[in-house]
């Protein structure tokens, strides 16, 4: 199936290229946009590999919500790029050591015997017609992994409450509007009609 492969490799290449650009590009706004492109291509690759649900959720959550807020913050910060580059040479040795360590660890996993050889992962059988990814994920989440799923939910709830608590502080000098009071205002409370005699002009 040549079309499948063309599309697959095209998206993979775009994804890898964009991922490299995220860390090399100078402008933080460009970096954030390249990260969006990376997520998007990753979702497309997942979609080709028949994990539609996760692919769409990746776009919905990371591209549609998380990265929008990221961009928001990055665009509003007036980042001067020059000071960011100042310590580059000084931190370079430490950075290289960390990078080498991580690369070594990855290679050890990849090269360990029999783990990533062609035979160890047989091609999965294609999903039958009418197979619903969403349904399968849902069933596993609410039966086999119910407890971790609920715990994750509670952790997120704690994070929400913490975020709200951080922003909720009393500032005495701030005037707050109460929309329901504003709506309830009657005409009589604001307007007073006064009958007066027109002034007679003095100078005529």
């Amino acid at each position: 199936m040549p079309i499948f492969e063309i599309v697959f490799y095209a998206f993979s290449l775009v994804m890898l290229g964009a991922a490299v650009m995220v860390i090399t590009v100078r402008n933080p706004v460009y970096a954030a946009l390249f990260l969006v492109l990376t997520f998007f291509s990753a979702a497309a690759v997942w979609m080709l590999l028949e994990v539609e649900f996760l692919a769409i959720i990746l776009i919905l959550v990371y591209v549609g919500a998380v990265m929008v807020l990221f961009l928001f913050v990055v665009m509003m910060l007036d980042i001067n790029v020059d000071p960011l580059k100042e310590g580059f040479v000084r931190y370079l040795p430490a950075g290289i050591i960390v990078a080498l360590l991580m690369a070594g660890e990855l290679l050890m996993v990849v090269w360990s015997k029999g783990r990533f050889e062609a035979g160890s992962y047989p091609l999965p059988a294609p999903n039958p017609q009418g197979y619903s990814n969403t349904k399968e994920v849902g069933e596993v989440l609410f039966t086999q992994y119910l407890l971790p799923f609920e715990v994750a939910g509670v952790i997120l709830l704690v994070a929400i409450i913490a975020a709200v608590a951080l922003t909720l502080r009393q500032r005495p000098a701030v005037h707050r509007q109460n929309p329901s009071l504003q709506v309830r205002v009657r005409r009589d409370e604001r307007i007073r009609l006064v009958k007066m005699k027109p002034d007679s002009r003095q100078d005529s």
């Binding site: 706004v29 946009l33 969006v36 539609e52 649900f53 769409i56 959720i57 776009i59 919905l60 591209v63 549609g64 919500a65 929008v68 961009l71 928001f72 665009m75 009418g130 619903s132 990814n133 969403t134």
Partner: peptide, 25 residues
């Protein structure tokens, strides 16, 4: 006629924001 049609729609409508935010910046 995909099984996750509704999710796809939500994903597409959430992508629309990017045009605006990029244009503004």
């Amino acid at each position: 006629d995909i099984n996750a049609g509704l999710l796809y729609l939500l994903a597409m409508s959430s992508l629309g924001v990017y045009g605006l935010i990029i244009a503004g910046w």
